[in-house]
């Protein structure tokens, strides 16, 4: 049975990981812009993400009594899921068998982690 302690903060975590994915990889489409400008823009964009994540972490830990390990791993899983779903829309070749088994193993890991 899956432990549902993380569910109250799942949506804020998803938003945080979405913003983090954008801040991390959004600039890769603008390789003609100098790295200094990109760094400054991304640092500015990271401010709302940091504020949001800090607030959410405080609520998760002190109000809902969720362990920080669960919050952190869930954040990373959602971050990976966002990149994976983005990749599904951009895929050009049919994935190999190993690549199809990979997400299933990840899902099994998530199940055992939350169980």
């Amino acid at each position: 049975m899956i432990n549902i302690e993380i569910f109250p903060v799942l949506l804020p975590l998803f938003i945080a990981s979405l913003v983090f994915a954008f801040v991390c990889f959004g600039h890769l489409a603008f390789k003609n812009v100098s790295i200094k400008k990109i760094c400054v823009v991304m640092a500015v964009l990271s401010v709302p993400f940091t504020l949001f994540f800090t607030k959410m972490l405080n609520i998760a830990v002190f109000e809902f009594d969720i362990s920080i390990l669960t919050v952190h791993v869930s954040f990373l899983i959602l971050f990976f899921a966002i990149i994976f779903i983005r990749g599904l829309f951009k895929v050009k070749k049919l994935p190999s068998l190993v690549q199809m088994i990979g997400p299933m193993i990840t899902c099994a890991g998530v199940y055992f982690f939350l169980a």
Binding site: P103, A108, F112
Partner: peptide
């Protein structure tokens, strides 16, 4: 399992 699955993907 999570990391190995991600690497396999």
């Amino acid at each position: 399992l999570i990391i190995v699955g991600a690497m396999m993907t």
